[in-house]
Design a protein around this nucleic acid. Structure first.
Lengths: 339, 339
DNA sequence: CTGTTAGCGCATTCAT
DNA sequence: ATGAATGCGCTAACAG
């Protein structure tokens, strides 16, 4: 199948017996043009169903008005919300977005960057993959002076603006909540240790323990690989412990949901036997039984702030100096921690 | 902030004292080139971190290798899965995608089409908004010979390829399932009547009733506006009926989930008082209590098939004649219908 | 084997 | 107030 022909300025010009530059001027409402000529041209353009070729325009002015977005996975409700926010606010500023997912692979992440750069996007919004443990590709972007920003999954050493949640605070709140609800031994189920959020949320967990005078017990930290199998394995390990925790805080909701499903199957009651809490506020967490206590992260808002700041930088409204935007999270106490 | 300069062929040419066309040839591995020259150029390109400008390339060959995708909303797990499938298989064929969401608004849908067309996408994959009740914008695409295809939310009168689920069959299966599990009075909760899936799923519902010798009762069909409020209102109406149904089939899972939540609050037991089933297989449906019987629609697969067929048409592998691809759904019997 | 030329669609500078 | 000429970065036809 071949694409049908698109009307160009040249054709309008020929039809009207004027030059292409006149068409160009008329269509961008240049003041130095005879009103009548302008009227005729605009009318004819409409009649011929003229649509400007953004490619040519972009090549000419070397700006595409397009932003590249890279997320680990688009099917995650959280990232979908971010994208939604980015899209909406990019659009209101006259920008389009091209979205890529890295599928949590650093190789794909690098390939995505390459593609988006080749596509001449004006800037990038990136949320790093789980696998990303070296950063040459980002430093390369930086060195080539291609504007970009990191959101949610960030690395602190890259000298660009970052938008994150107050992970420490959120984890603190949820740990505190467990402690206040009578838990004596609170466990933290982490993801891989080099993940930014693994570290940050552990920080909050530790801080809360300390503030409540609970001594840290290394046995009360487990690390999941974040697959369903891995999560269930952790659930099993906990179930089989001689000295079980009485409250478990999981780094992200899916971990808690998998563990909950496993425990329910095994007859372990939540919250009676063990309280359980997550982080992120996945849609499922509200409807599961018992409903899962978690920490809400407003993804749409994050996307909105991220893209707005980036465009502010592009447009010279905000300074080029990297800033860190930290969004607050909200503890959502639900049944899974009601002792 | 201004974007840093990108290396062009011209610069490589100057540095090496050869012409731009030689660079071009070397970089696309033309056979009619001195190996040594080629080697030097490739090396220099690498050293200078040359990235081809896809814009220029596309303008030149009038093909962008980019596909436009329009979905009602990206935060829906189903559409996100479709996008994921589209993205993956577009990439393997060397295509990128630009995604837009219509937010269920026909105006935004039209605006999105305009933007994507201006961006010179080679083809479009569109899933219609709920609001879309006239089709000039699609016929316009058709008349302008811009290849596109409709998926999931389609209109049958547009002469292009369509990828849909066997909605009739899926609805038949779920209704049959309710009937076989002892329901005597099965209700269908529909969405707005002009929606394609509202109609198709009703067809399956009616067919099953007929096959099981159950007379159709108009009181056993209700129409929700698909907002949470609307869904709850339906749940309330059902609860207050003198003669309640004993089984309720909802057009989409969110309706069933909202109704379930309302009923639980009111002490109405599922499935004992009324059985309940949905359609789509949202992630929440598996974890809600009781788990919700539903019909699985493989979104990723739909995206994959849709994009593959479209690219086959573009590449001349498949005929340009519109075809209809119908995907099978799978009934997922769960606790909400276990009588 | 390589350089020159032309042109994709558009915006802009320089003429007139 | 309008046209002609130039160039954005790249490819391809043509010429040698």
């Amino acid at each position: 199948m071949k694409k049908g022909h698109q009307v160009t300025m040249k054709e309008i010009a020929k039809k009207l017996g004027v030059s292409v530059s006149t068409i160009s001027r008329a269509l961008k409402d240049s003041p130095e043009l005879h009103p009548e000529t302008k009227r005729k041209i605009v009318e004819m353009a409409k009649e011929m169903n003229y649509q400007p070729n953004l490619l040519a325009q972009s090549l000419r002015i070397s700006r595409t008005k397009t932003l590249g977005v890279i997320v680990p996975e688009i099917t995650s409700h959280f990232f979908a919300s971010c994208i939604s926010g980015i899209q909406d606010f990019a659009n209101t500023r006259g920008y389009n977005i091209m979205i890529c997912q890295s599928n949590e692979s650093i190789d794909l992440e690098m390939a995505n960057i390459k593609t988006l750069v080749s596509s001449q996007v004006d800037a990038l919004l990136i949320s790093l993959s789980r696998e990303t443990n070296h950063y040459e590709h980002l430093l390369d972007l930086y060195n080539r002076e291609i504007p970009f920003l990191l959101f949610d999954r960030v690395n602190e050493d890259i000298p660009v603006s970052k938008v994150t949640f107050n992970d420490v605070g959120g984890a603190y709140e949820v740990t505190k909540h467990l402690l206040e609800n009578g838990c004596k031994k609170v466990m933290y189920v982490s993801g891989p240790e080099d993940l930014y959020i693994s570290k940050k949320r552990k920080e909050g967990y530790m801080q809360a323990l300390e503030d409540f005078g609970v001594e840290f017990d290394p046995k009360m930290v487990k690390i999941s690989n974040l697959t369903t199998e891995g999560n269930i394995k952790i659930g099993q390990e906990i179930a089989e412990m001689k000295e079980r925790p009485d409250g478990v805080f999981c780094m992200i909701d899916p971990v808690a949901l998998d563990i909950l499903a496993y425990w329910k199957e095994k007859g372990i009651r939540v919250p009676q036997d063990m309280a359980l809490a997550g982080f992120t506020n996945n849609p499922s967490s509200a409807v599961v039984e018992p409903s899962l206590t978690t920490v809400a992260q407003p993804g749409y808002e994050m996307g909105k702030l991220a893209v707005t700041h980036l465009l502010d930088q592009l447009d010279g409204i905000a300074s080029d100096d990297p800033i860190s935007i930290v969004l607050d999270t909200t503890l959502l106490p639900r049944k899974s921690t009601e002792k």
